[in-house]
Amino acid sequence: GEHHGHHHHHHEHRGLKEILHIIDHTEISDRAKETACRIFRILAEAESAAHGVPMEEVHFHEVGAVDSIVDIVAVAVCLDNLNITRAVVPVLCEGSGFVRCQHGMIPVPVPAVANIAGANGLKLKLTEIQGELVTPTGAAIVAAVKTDDKLPEAFTIVKTGMGAGKRSYERPSILRAMLIRGEESRKDTICKLETNIDDCTGEMLGYVMDRLFEEGARDVHYIPVFMKKNRPAYQLNVICSEEDADRLERVIFAETTTIGIRRLCMERTVLPREVIQVGTPLGQASVKVCRLEGENRYYPEYADAARLSREHKRPFMEVYEMIKAACPKKQDVQPAE
């Protein structure tokens, strides 16, 4: 009994709450803490589903081991250090068959990996290799940091890192990560949704625009049009990414009188861009930086310029120019692709 009691007590200290507490008290940057905690939450969610217990009661056996905390925190620190804001993971190659764990033989992908992949939309590709190629920790890291499925069409490799696993399979057990840079102007695909509306009030149209922006539309605008029998009406245009199109169409159907929406997928060319923070005599402001043939163009964010103008009772134009003047000279900024 003595031994069992001690063992039980030992486990209690490895719940999600304790692990998040440990991470929160490490001397790493806030961004790294945030990433590490996000990874552990995804892991806890998957383990809770696999064991059928609430998240608070998940005990990290294999995972709660100190080395796993170290693995996860190390990944978070490295990503923060390298200032990675976008991570492309096209597919995770997983083995097949069964693996032995403390619950006996379980099928590959193991339940926690299957849950993480399901909950976070990870693409799995099952290979003939017998064994587990994706661990719950690995899957959770991908789920927490992945921003894209597709590599840019053309890119240059800045650096490459390799990590080897301990088990030997018929294929080398190696994970490779590459730091890449896309080409200067990126072509990507965007969706345009449009519909003509001739029997909605102005208030309804104003409200639907707010709702569309809340749901992730990149741009929304109305064009006055004249429809049959010369009825004045509006054409609603929404620009969005392909994955958001279905959701935005549901908003349009729910909030307007339309009964049909046209959808058009278009290629567009965008300049590489990023948002930076700039310190001015009046306070901090966000600025969008676009790169064009080696030159940086700076566009202060309207909301910040307006806020500083109001706070300091200065004309908008003057504040806008002041923010532009405070922007770094071109060689200091290398916008992330």
Rank of each mutant, 00 (worst) to 15 (best):
His221Gly: 12
Val225Cys: 07
Lys330His: 02
Glu318Gln: 02
His8Arg: 00
Asp149Arg: 04
Val66Glu: 13
Glu242Trp: 08
Ala306Leu: 12
Gly131Asn: 01
Leu79Gly: 15
Thr85Gly: 00
Glu249Trp: 03
Ser168Ile: 08
Leu264Val: 08
Glu321Asp: 11
His61Asp: 12
His6Leu: 11
Asp148Met: 08
Cys78His: 09
Thr135Ile: 15
Cys240Tyr: 01
Met227Gly: 09
Asp210Gln: 03
Ala32Val: 05
Cys101His: 14
Lys17Pro: 03
Cys191Leu: 07
Pro172Gln: 03
Arg31Ser: 03
Glu214Val: 11
Thr257Met: 01
Tyr298Thr: 00
Val91Leu: 01
Arg86Gln: 09
Leu124Phe: 10
Tyr302Arg: 06
Tyr222Ala: 03
Asn83Gln: 01
Cys290Trp: 05
Asn83Ser: 00
Glu132Val: 03
Pro54Phe: 15
Gln284Met: 05
Ile72Ala: 08
Ala44Ser: 01
Ile223His: 06
Val319Arg: 08
Glu57Ser: 01
Ala336Thr: 06
Arg273Ser: 05
Ile19Leu: 02
Glu27Gln: 14
Arg307Ser: 09
His9Met: 10
Phe226Asn: 12
Ala114Lys: 07
Ala65Tyr: 11
Gln284Phe: 11
Ala325Trp: 14
Ala254His: 09
Met55Arg: 02
Tyr302Gln: 14
Glu184Arg: 07
Asp149Thr: 05
Phe213Tyr: 02
Glu274Leu: 02
Arg176Gln: 04
Leu43Gln: 07
Ala144Trp: 07
Ser29His: 04
Ala44Phe: 02
Arg231Phe: 07
Val113Trp: 15
His61Val: 12
Thr280Tyr: 12
Lys166Ala: 05
Ser173Asn: 09
His13Ala: 09
Leu82Gln: 03
Val238Tyr: 00
Gly182Trp: 05
Tyr320Arg: 12
Val145Gln: 12
Thr26Ile: 06
Glu27Asn: 05
Gly182Tyr: 13
His25Ser: 08
His13Cys: 13
Val73Tyr: 05
Ile23His: 02
Pro272Thr: 10
Val73Pro: 08
Ile180Met: 06
Glu18Arg: 06
Glu47Gln: 06
Phe98Lys: 10
Gln130Asp: 00
Val134Ser: 10
Val142Ile: 13
Asn83Lys: 00
Leu92Gln: 08
Gln277Asp: 09
Gly161Val: 04
Asp332Leu: 13
Ala114Gly: 08
Cys327Asn: 00
Gly5Glu: 04
Ile223Glu: 13
Leu151Pro: 09
Thr256Asp: 01
Pro109Met: 14
Thr201Gly: 04
His21Thr: 09
Ser96Thr: 07
Tyr299Arg: 04
Thr160Arg: 12
Ile28Arg: 14
Lys125Trp: 05
Glu295Thr: 02
Phe40Asp: 00
Gly15Asp: 01
Arg291Met: 07
Thr258Leu: 04
Lys329Trp: 06
Asn81Arg: 09
Asp244Lys: 01
Gly95Cys: 08
His7Leu: 15
Val319Ala: 10
Lys229Glu: 11
Arg250Gly: 14
Ala74Asp: 07
Arg176Asn: 07
Met105Lys: 07
Glu47Tyr: 15
Thr156Glu: 01
His8Met: 00
Ser185Met: 15
Glu153Ala: 14
Glu128Tyr: 15
Arg273His: 08
Ala140Ser: 13
Val63Ser: 05
Glu321Ser: 14
Asp198Phe: 01
Arg171Ala: 00
Leu205Cys: 01
Gly279Trp: 15
Met322Asp: 13
Pro232Asn: 12
Lys123Ala: 11
Ala326Trp: 13
Lys330Glu: 02
Val220Ala: 07
Gly161Glu: 03
Gln284Ile: 05
Ser286Lys: 05
Lys159Cys: 15
Val319Trp: 13
